[in-house]
Design a protein around this nucleic acid. Structure first.
Lengths: 118, 118
DNA sequence: ATATCTTTGTTAGTTTTAATCACCTATGAC
DNA sequence: GTCATAGGTGATTAAAACTAACAAAGATAT
């Protein structure tokens, strides 16, 4: 995520829309100097205005950030384990290999004993 | 792009990886308080550390920002837990509450036995 | 040719804000 | 009870992002 690239894409998108720095600044609600600094890379990042800039330019936030075209809106699967499971994994990580194996074997015995659903 | 949502996803991703605020802070190179403030929404944004946070958590920048997986490159992520740990968690999930508690207690006993007193 | 208007780049100064430090609470182990 | 770990929050500090002002290049008209 090169930050200089973001400014370049802001400029390209702005010019493709036929906007001046002033008009984009008005749409976003910042000064024209701010837009100029985004585009010339003097500001490290567009920051909190990123969403507003993307909307004003008619592009996706992902495009400005990463250069990839708009993302298909399929949901990802973020969290996998819950708090209890997290605690177990933390303990597991502190065990030696033999103890880890013993834990897995015991868990397996317990699980099998619980009449596993298919 | 609700900024409070970003903190929520940082927390979920962090816990899914089994990291504490301290360990994530160390990975990113900031103080633990900074991580706490991201997650509680006290800081409006993660800002320039966004890319580092995403990398440390093994998720995409787009996911942290938008809750969507974003570009395909974002999806080439390392697994959040290792294969052995995942297997243990799966077995754990098939155990009854008493057996789950027994597993945790045993894991703790093992972990303590392995503990390196700092 | 020069005056003027438009657009953009850049520097200096101000303000916002994110990070750090410190202290606090809650929880669990011993 | 103490001790250790994990996390939340107020106050201070340092680093930004923003604004304002000035400068330069290009076009157009007179």
């Amino acid at each position: 995520m090169n930050l200089g690239e973001i400014g370049r894409r802001v400029r390209e998108s702005r010019e493709a829309r036929g906007l001046t720095q002033s008009s984009l600044a008005a749409l976003v609600g910042v000064s024209r100097s701010a837009v100029a600094q985004w585009e010339t890379g003097r500001s490290g990042q567009v920051g909190a205005n990123l969403a507003l800039v993307a909307e004003a330019l008619g592009v996706g936030v992902s495009y400005l950030l990463l250069g990839e075209p708009g993302s298909p809106a399929d949901r990802s699967e973020p969290p996998q384990i819950t708090g209890n499971e997290l605690a177990l994994v933390r303990l597991y990580r502190r065990c030696g290999p033999a103890d880890q194996a013993a834990l897995v074997r015991l868990a397996h015995r317990f699980a099998v004993g619980q009449a596993s659903p298919t």
